[in-house]
Simulated assay, not measured.
Amino acid sequence: MTWPASTPPPPYYAVIFTSLRSGIDDGYAQTAQRMEELAAGRQGFLGIESVRDGTQGITLSYWTDLEAIRAWRADLEHAEAQRLGRARWYARYSVRIARVERAYTYG
């Protein structure tokens, strides 16, 4: 993962995934790595940034358009990871989708 993600000039879209882990690992790290690799190969993927502090985490993925986000959500391997997330790894989570209108970087 590159931080910050190397994104083109706006507009583009961000998927903001905030989560509270359940405390169960059981393959979580391997699945998270696989999802990052899988997303990176999808058409419309621009980049990803992620931070975790104990059980709380925020992951932002960047996409060219809403159709690319829909296609990623519907990916069969990603859908299975989502199912496992609900069943094992997350006590709760929230997904927000936003259009990035302006972006600034320092340093």
Rank of each mutant, 00 (worst) to 15 (best):
T2M: 13
T2D: 13
W3I: 11
W3Q: 12
W3F: 15
P4Y: 13
P8A: 10
P8H: 14
P9C: 05
P10M: 04
P10T: 05
P11V: 03
Y13E: 00
A14K: 05
V15N: 01
F17A: 00
F17R: 02
L20C: 10
R21A: 15
G23V: 03
I24D: 14
D25Q: 09
D26I: 01
A29Y: 04
A29F: 11
A29Q: 13
A29D: 15
Q30M: 00
Q30C: 01
A32W: 09
M35E: 04
M35N: 03
E36K: 08
E36I: 13
E37R: 15
E37Y: 13
L38Q: 14
A39S: 15
A39P: 05
A39Q: 02
A39F: 11
A40K: 12
G41W: 06
R42N: 08
R42S: 12
Q43N: 14
G44T: 08
L46N: 04
L46P: 02
I48F: 04
E49P: 05
V51A: 11
D53T: 11
G54E: 08
L60K: 05
S61T: 11
T64Q: 10
T64K: 11
D65L: 01
L66F: 00
E67S: 10
E67C: 00
R70A: 15
R70T: 11
A71D: 13
D75R: 04
D75V: 06
E77I: 11
E77T: 14
H78R: 06
A81T: 12
A81Q: 10
A81G: 15
A81D: 06
Q82L: 07
Q82V: 15
R83F: 06
L84E: 14
L84K: 15
G85W: 05
G85L: 07
G85Y: 09
G85R: 12
R86Q: 12
A87L: 15
R88L: 14
W89M: 04
W89K: 06
Y90P: 12
Y93G: 03
V95R: 04
V95F: 09
V95K: 09
R96H: 11
I97K: 06
A98E: 11
A98I: 03
A98P: 00
R99S: 07
R99D: 02
R102A: 12
A103T: 11
A103P: 00
Y104D: 03
Y106S: 14
Y106H: 14
G107T: 02
